[in-house]
Amino acid sequence: MKNYIFLFTFLLVAAFCTAQDADKVIGVVINSADDTPLESVNIVNLNQVIGTSTNSKGEFKISAKANDTLHFSYLGFKSIKVRVTNDWLKFGSSKIELTELALALEEVVVNQLKLTGYLEVDVMQVPEVNKNYRYSISGLPSTGYEAGKPTAVTKILGSIFNPADFLYRMFGKKPNELRKLKKMKQDDEIRNLLASRFDREMLTVLLQVDRVDLDEIVSQCNYSKGFIQTANDLQILDAISECYEEYKLLSRGRSKRL
């Protein structure tokens, strides 16, 4: 009798463990050129908006369901998307190959300043430093808008009193992508991945927008050109999320007045 109880318990535990891993896929990422494992490859489930990275052996495990799409990216290698299949979920580990990119360094031109000794003349040769300012709007919970000094006031007034057509076109027609914003902000692994990136690739893939449109969104949200050029992907994500929350608040305010 004890043997039957032990066997039943063993089968029950095995079934439970199998069920726990039924929604996960495992694999190893390698360099297609020499089959060496790649460590710290960024992996994101685009459907569930969760992420992970490979370990020192190139191995990974991530939650996924059949037909989910996994995005693999690694510095110096071509990014790829892989569809999760029932066979992958059922039979275990899969080998993912990444192809190395040929990178070319851009030419850097150094201009030497020739000082004359006359302060008025020499000051004119010094490149102008781009100064950015943040402006707060009464009634909004955030720290406000960042913008260049010449057009900051007009942009802020426009964002309040105009219909914000561009934001509506970008935000209003992509509710699924906007829901991903919240998931991206909640997933620590995603945030850690974005904090170390400056290429905007993961953001464009997750939000399903082009790089040009992504920069335009941040620009229309009154963030300066300097911020857009220097911010990491996590800062851009937070900027878009903050802008959208303010846009919704302003839209509700207009609806009540109407």
Rank of each mutant, 00 (worst) to 15 (best):
L194K: 03
S219E: 14
V129S: 10
M124N: 15
K173Q: 08
K149F: 02
K173V: 06
D122M: 11
T151K: 14
D213G: 05
L203A: 05
Y133T: 07
I240N: 03
F227H: 09
A195G: 11
F227Y: 15
K174A: 08
S159D: 05
G139H: 00
G172N: 02
I156A: 15
M124Y: 09
A239Q: 08
E189G: 04
Y145Q: 02
T154E: 13
I217G: 06
F161P: 02
R134D: 00
N132L: 13
R134V: 11
T116V: 09
K173E: 10
T230D: 10
R211S: 12
D238I: 14
R179N: 07
T151Q: 15
D188Q: 12
L194S: 04
L206G: 03
K180E: 03
V218S: 05
L214T: 11
Q229P: 01
K185N: 13
E120N: 07
L194E: 09
A195M: 10
V205Q: 11
L203P: 03
R211V: 15
M202T: 08
L113N: 02
F171G: 02
P175K: 07
L115T: 07
L178G: 01
L234I: 12
V209M: 07
F171I: 09
K180R: 13
G148L: 07
D210R: 15
L203E: 10
L206T: 12
K182Y: 08
L119H: 14
L193D: 06
A239G: 06
P127V: 00
V126R: 03
A231E: 04
A231V: 13
T230S: 13
E128R: 12
V126S: 03
Q229I: 07
L237G: 01
Q235G: 04
T143M: 12
G144I: 11
N130F: 11
L203R: 00
L237N: 06
I137Y: 14
G158M: 09
T143Q: 15
Y168F: 15
P163F: 12
V129W: 09
L237P: 00
D215Q: 08
E128C: 02
L203Q: 04
N130I: 11
E128G: 04
D188I: 08
F161C: 03
T230L: 06
I236F: 01
I137Q: 11
P150Q: 11
K225T: 02
R197P: 00
A239P: 00
L206I: 14
G148E: 08
E201N: 13
N232G: 04
F166R: 07
Q235S: 13
G144S: 08
R197H: 00
T230C: 03
A195N: 07
Y145R: 12
G139T: 05
L115C: 10
Y118W: 06
S224C: 01
N222P: 04
L181F: 09
K183H: 10
D199P: 05
V212A: 09
R191K: 13
A164T: 06
K185C: 10
P175D: 01
K114G: 04
Y223P: 00
N232Y: 01
A231W: 01
S136M: 12
C221G: 15
L119F: 02
Q208P: 06
I160P: 02
N176F: 06
Q186T: 07
S136R: 15
Q208N: 15
T143Y: 13
E216F: 05
I240H: 00
A147W: 03
I160A: 05
S138F: 05
V218T: 02
N132M: 05
I240M: 09
T116Q: 05
F166W: 05
P127G: 07
T116W: 06
G117D: 00
L157T: 15
S138N: 13
